[in-house]
């Protein structure tokens, strides 16, 4: 079943505080959705809950992906069915090279899907090809994961991971935060190159400018835990002018 991501009446709390207050969202295969909203509206929470980060309590609703009951799955099982999260703040793993990390990830996913593991040569070929497409220098592959990477390098490295792991749905959690305009363009080119009929995107951003480069099919506004408006790419442009002031806290 490939009906994409279906979120129904999702309610999420951290401690006593309800962050998401009934989210309904469907991301069909091959479609690019953007979620915009003011700070503290629950955008990152949504990304984390879909990908299974611990620390959140789901108090109601459901998430399915291609028919899988996502909320019942471990984070690595979600990865195996094709969910990918590009992190807002990618963490460092000292001593582990980029190559080794990605090889382990690729083969863990293949194993989980019942596929044969890639031999080192086949993997390196794949990695080099993807790195080249993203104009990543070869030495970056040998460096320790995110250690000493600039903000831009970290995000480009996230794009590399996405390219190599080839997910069905990629969630970009404020990938543009902390990036200058050149870095944003490089990231966006990476995403655009990977758009395809069987790959959907959920682009979470505070600012419109990323959406100048990654033009979404659908734009949602998430404010105070609810999706308050849905529209096309023009909605994002309107928000650039008006800001989020019109969305007041729900009673």
């Amino acid at each position: 079943m490939s009906n994409g991501l279906v979120i129904k009446d999702l309610r999420v709390s951290i401690g006593d505080k309800e962050i998401l207050k009934g989210i309904n969202l469907t991301v069909e295969p091959g479609v690019v959705h953007a979620i915009m909203g003011p700070n503290g509206s629950g955008k990152s929470t949504l990304a984390h809950v879909i990908s299974g980060r611990p620390g959140y309590e789901v108090t109601g609703g459901s998430i399915t992906f291609d028919g899988h009951d996502v909320l019942e799955m471990e984070p690595e099982e979600r990865a195996a069915v094709g969910l990918f999260l590009a992190f807002q703040y990618p963490v460092e793993i000292p001593g582990v090279t980029n190559v080794n990390f990605l090889k382990t990830a690729v083969n863990s996913l293949r194993k989980a899907r019942g596929e044969k593991e890639l031999d080192p040569m086949a993997f390196l070929k794949l990695l080099r090809e993807k790195a080249k497409a993203l104009e990543l220098p070869e030495d970056m592959l040998k460096r320790q994961l995110n250690v000493g990477f600039s903000g831009g390098e970290k995000k480009r490295n996230e794009m590399l991971q996405m390219a190599v792991l080839a997910p069905k749905l990629a969630i970009l959690d404020e990938t543009d935060s902390g990036l200058d305009i050149d870095a944003i363009r490089i990231v966006a080119e990476g995403v655009n190159a990977q758009r395809s009929p069987d790959r959907a995107f959920l682009v979470i951003t505070h600012y419109q400018r990323l959406l100048d480069y990654i033009v979404p099919d659908v734009v949602h506004v998430l404010a105070y835990g609810k999706i308050v408006e849905t529209g096309g790419a023009d909605l994002a442009r309107r928000l650039e002018k008006t800001g989020y002031a019109e969305y007041t806290p729900a009673a």
Binding site: S51, G52, R53, P54, G55, E74, P75, E76, R78, A79, A80, F84, L85, F87, P90, V91, I93, F101, T104, A105, V106, S108, L109, A112, Q161, L165
Partner: peptide
Amino acid sequence: DDQLFLCRQRGLS
């Protein structure tokens, strides 16, 4: 926890 989650999100147990 962030390191662990990063790895698991990429498919590692």
